[in-house]
Nucleic acid binder design. Sequence first.
RNA 1: CGGGAUGUAGCGCAGUGGCUAGCGCGCCUCGUUCGGGACGAGGAGGCCGCGGGUUCGAGUCCCGCCAUCCCGACCA
Length: 484
Amino acid sequence: MAEKITPRSTSYSDWYIDIVTQAKLADYSPVKGSMVIRPRGYALWEKIQGTLDRMFKETGHSNAYFPLLIPQGFLQKEAEHVEGFAPELAVVTHGGGAELDEPLVIRPTSETIIWAMYKKWIQSYRDLPLLINQWANVVRWEKRTRLFLRTTEFLWQEGHTAHSTKEEAVEETKRMLDVYRTFAEEYMAVPVLTGVKSESEKFAGAVDTYAIEALMQDKKALQAGTSHFLGQNFAKAFDVTFQNKEGGLDHVWATSWGVSTRLIGALIMAHSDDNGLVLPPRLAPTQAVVVPIFKTSNKEQVLDYANGIFQEIRKTLGTEFNRVILDDDEANSPGWKFAEWEMVGVPVRVELGPRDMENKKVVLVRRDTREKEFVDASAAPARIKELLEEIQQNLYQKALAFRQENTFAANTYDEFKAYFDGEGGGGFVTAPWNGDAGIEAKIKEETKATIRVLPFGNEEQALGKTCIFSGEPAKYLAVFAKAY
RNA sequence: CGGGAUGUAGCGCAGUGGCUAGCGCGCCUCGUUCGGGACGAGGAGGCCGCGGGUUCGAGUCCCGCCAUCCCGACCA
């Protein structure tokens, strides 16, 4: 009965799938490459959404909703954009029983339809900046899919802003990247590298793409969020101009930025273990579960005791639905419940039975280390609150230490290759690079490693160094990794 | 798009041309249990992926199709 989770050491990829399915986060749908997000997975997404949504609003953005279907011609207006997305488009050719005059594409991202609308809405510098976000689903026809990390349809948020100056747009791009970094580190407990994407890795249609990159437990990198400076590319493609203070006409400057349900994949792969999901308390839909241990003869007394403590904990942690759960189910044994709640990643488990009742104690078990502690019942709610904070910090520190242990600097190409060699190979490897895309492609072919990010301001640090791939003067200190 | 695998009960699987298709888990009922995935008894549950063919007889053999998963190339 115990649905086992494949240990990470046996197969990281099977482990990941087992976590997702056994913790009931998602399930395969009948359509290839798409998935159903189940209530536990969706609750997690709602936590992510709620937090980010607040952060977006605090930085001045408003939500809106743009339609799913986009005229095919819109995509074609921006040359690089269409080229980048053409292979991934789902196209609707029929509607209402008849063939459409112009096919519609299901949005792979919404720049085009949004900029078609911005053209109508922006006339003057007084209309700027325009700061809009939308929560939506998008479809990208992927050849190879993986639950949460890459599915044909996924949920995300996409911010689209319009500005009167380049400086302001660049500032916005960086601001939102910083929002993502803060969110990843403080809520997801996942440390991230930030920086610029290389030319070949950037978003189709962007001038610059900034990203946050996280290291997973298998030493592969995961791009967890992107923020794009779009320059005037879309403004020009859609002819969006505004009248400036001096009365002249300028094209609008743009940004876009997004994170997706992929973040759930990042959470799983950053923290979870062979016993199941491990969630950072700030995002855990359920932070604590109370498991009473009773038999028929003492059921009432124990449940009474448990319920009293449960109510006290609720007062401390909040009464939000499911934030604290009392598992008084009679069908399953305590041992079964322990394993089950560990599997689904509840950060703190409160065990209490007749012995605890006698001593006015409870047992607290933290999910991250699985350590038990015995505390006075009256002190439990406050201690749980502390524990949640400790777990949050511990997860971050563990992930940070892991990243540090797996971050290297390569001085020669041989050394570089050695870091990515074999089963245990991987991590972030920094190397001086001359900026040549051909070399980047060759490295990818030979080692599977790609440039994840060019850390901000690292051109200066690269000064005087030699590109270890070409022998030419280095332009950047690039961070390489094998990536998802 | 290439390579590999798999389609039999809700899930995981067994089934060597021959009777009424099985096992484990889960599910339902009753009882006993209950401090790390309890036990007994009794039950319910099947278009054997789909379509052809061979055969007295096909889950099993042959042909075709479909689907999904995993691994690679392309991508958040």
